Amino acid sequence: MKKILALTLLGALSIGIAAEAPAAFRKCVACHGINGQKVAPGAKGGVTIAGLPKTKLLADLKGYKAGTADNGGAKAIMYGQMKNVSDTDIEALADYISKLPPKK
């Protein structure tokens, strides 16, 4: 019973986080998880995006949009994902992801 209650609570928290996310974050969830704490395909060193500095996220996302960023992961996937994302959405993504709690 306690396990079911804990899982229900975790699910509710996840839904709450997702409700606050910018619409463009939907593209990120499959690889990075609903809370940004999932290690994406090809990510080196088990790095996750949750809680990264906004300046780094902005630089990386803009670099992926331009097709120039290479953080050693699955850059081709990121190039495709970011190709048609607006600068306004990139700003919203960077702000949102930087505020997510990092993986412990």
Score class of each variant (00 low, 15 high):
residue 1 M to L: 07
residue 1 M to R: 13
residue 2 K to C: 02
residue 2 K to E: 09
residue 3 K to L: 08
residue 4 I to C: 05
residue 5 L to I: 04
residue 5 L to K: 10
residue 5 L to M: 07
residue 6 A to L: 13
residue 7 L to I: 06
residue 11 G to R: 03
residue 11 G to H: 07
residue 12 A to L: 13
residue 13 L to R: 06
residue 13 L to G: 12
residue 15 I to D: 04
residue 16 G to A: 12
residue 17 I to F: 03
residue 18 A to W: 10
residue 19 A to P: 00
residue 19 A to N: 01
residue 20 E to N: 15
residue 20 E to P: 00
residue 21 A to H: 04
residue 25 F to T: 12
residue 25 F to A: 05
residue 26 R to K: 14
residue 26 R to M: 09
residue 26 R to P: 03
residue 26 R to C: 08
residue 27 K to N: 11
residue 28 C to F: 06
residue 30 A to V: 13
residue 31 C to V: 12
residue 31 C to S: 08
residue 32 H to C: 07
residue 32 H to K: 10
residue 32 H to G: 04
residue 33 G to D: 09
residue 34 I to L: 05
residue 34 I to R: 06
residue 37 Q to W: 04
residue 37 Q to G: 03
residue 38 K to Q: 08
residue 39 V to L: 05
residue 39 V to P: 03
residue 39 V to G: 07
residue 39 V to D: 09
residue 41 P to T: 11
residue 41 P to V: 14
residue 41 P to E: 04
residue 42 G to T: 04
residue 44 K to F: 00
residue 44 K to R: 11
residue 46 G to K: 12
residue 47 V to G: 03
residue 47 V to E: 12
residue 48 T to F: 13
residue 49 I to Y: 05
residue 49 I to Q: 04
residue 49 I to D: 02
residue 49 I to G: 01
residue 50 A to R: 02
residue 52 L to H: 08
residue 52 L to N: 11
residue 52 L to S: 11
residue 52 L to G: 12
residue 53 P to W: 07
residue 53 P to K: 13
residue 54 K to S: 03
residue 54 K to T: 08
residue 55 T to H: 08
residue 55 T to P: 01
residue 56 K to Y: 11
residue 56 K to T: 04
residue 56 K to Q: 14
residue 57 L to Y: 10
residue 57 L to M: 12
residue 58 L to M: 15
residue 58 L to P: 01
residue 62 K to E: 13
residue 63 G to V: 08
residue 64 Y to G: 08
residue 64 Y to K: 05
residue 65 K to E: 07
residue 66 A to S: 14
residue 66 A to C: 10
residue 67 G to H: 10
residue 69 A to C: 06
residue 70 D to V: 11
residue 71 N to E: 08
residue 71 N to S: 08
residue 71 N to R: 06
residue 71 N to L: 06
residue 72 G to T: 12
residue 73 G to A: 14
residue 74 A to Y: 08
residue 74 A to D: 15
residue 74 A to L: 11
residue 76 A to W: 03
residue 76 A to K: 15
residue 77 I to P: 02
residue 77 I to G: 09
residue 77 I to E: 09
residue 77 I to T: 14
residue 81 Q to F: 01
residue 83 K to D: 00
residue 84 N to R: 07
residue 86 S to L: 13
residue 86 S to C: 09
residue 88 T to F: 09
residue 88 T to Y: 08
residue 89 D to V: 00
residue 91 E to A: 14
residue 92 A to H: 03
residue 93 L to H: 00
residue 94 A to P: 02
residue 95 D to V: 10
residue 96 Y to H: 05
residue 96 Y to N: 10
residue 97 I to K: 01
residue 98 S to G: 02
residue 100 L to Q: 02
residue 101 P to N: 14
residue 101 P to D: 14
residue 101 P to H: 05
residue 102 P to S: 12
residue 102 P to R: 11
